[in-house]
Nucleic acid binder design. Sequence first.
DNA 1: TATCCACTGCGTTTACTGGC
DNA 2: GCCAGTAAACGCAGTGGATA
Length: 412
Amino acid sequence: MPAPDSTTRQRLQQLRQQLQQAGYAYYVLDAPTLPDSVYDKLYRELQDLEAEYPELVTPDSPTQRVGDRPAEQFTSWRHTIPLYSLENAFNAEELAKWEERWQRLVDPIPEFDYVCELKIDGSALALTYEEGVFVRGVTRGDGTTGEEITPNVRTIRAIPLRLAMDNPPAQVEIRGEAFLPIAEFDRINQERAAADEPPFANPRNAAAGTLRQLDPKVVDRRRLSFFAYTLHIPSEPERQPATQWAALELMQQMGFQVNPNRQHCANLAEVDAYFQAWDTQRKALPYLTDGVVLKLNSVPLQQQLGFTQKFPRWAIALKYPAEEVPTQVREISVNVGRTGAVTPMAIMAPVQVAGTTVQRATLHNSDRVQELDVRVGDTVIIRKAGEIIPEVVRVLPELRSPNTELFTMTTA
DNA sequence: TATCCACTGCGTTTACTGGC
DNA sequence: GCCAGTAAACGCAGTGGATA
């Protein structure tokens, strides 16, 4: 086989660039620049050239998104900067307390503003780029150590394999949320129904499960998407944007999809207005969102405030109220844990809440049982805290039968 | 007051086991 | 070898008790 000449090398580079730009326009901007037939023709030309000259295949080539072989298992990867979750607030009062808390830690209180972003319901990912090329994708895990799922992350078209910038930093870490768009979730479930497979319960869990697939081809077929929201440039801190707003804009320039529904807010009143407005509008979005993320815009101020053991002090999630559903308590059982801890549990008539079937909820302890005054046969209101954890909110005593008995815990 | 740890339920995937 | 069933692990968020 003849060695590739400079014309071939140039053509390869040109094809990659054209396909990368077309992919960015299609998957990130949602504004296609090439007809499908033209994209397919260019893609096949690239495939043919790479087959002829395999030594010229690069890891950022659009042909390299889907690996040939399934992984045998995932390996653990320690985050260089912990990937924290956020503290939650459920009302204006809790938000005001959070603001008071961070303001107590700085003296004098500097001028500040907030950036509000929609909280996407998916799975957090940390992406590493070296010299502008994607090299690693890791899940949140316990915040310190996650699972390295690079081959799966490569299949997500909204994640560029090469940063769209000249002179990229030696190392860049992008954090964001991988999620399953609602239309994709519906399409997958239609296919599963046709194949006589059980449907997925909700987009969030389907996305989390998809990312843990060993075979990237399966991940590729499920068309996950991604919104970037955090940028770290550890190798060149002087290039780190001074504000969260500028970081979002820089990530967009780098080729990432950044949620367009963000807003500057000067104070908590403006935050509340943004939160209320999106409570209605979010139902029309093509993806799930369960709240609003509020961040201090100034990165130096963020660095000054730092982190608690669990959360950043400079950001908080303001959550929308969970869906509340009535059901009936069939039984109250008592579980004994590994350590001997005794936990009462409400067993209820199965009911759909926030996309899953719920029939059990912890009652935590005897004080909580007494406080709720929950009895077998009662109609109760349940919800899923954080869209995940089933919780008995209150009893409806007006619907109680006259012959119910007070429940008392016995620990034999 | 802040933090750590154990424990909770559900959905999902993977690994394993047993039966045919 | 294939299939069905089950266990284990993970991710997620919240509570409560213990401890610093």
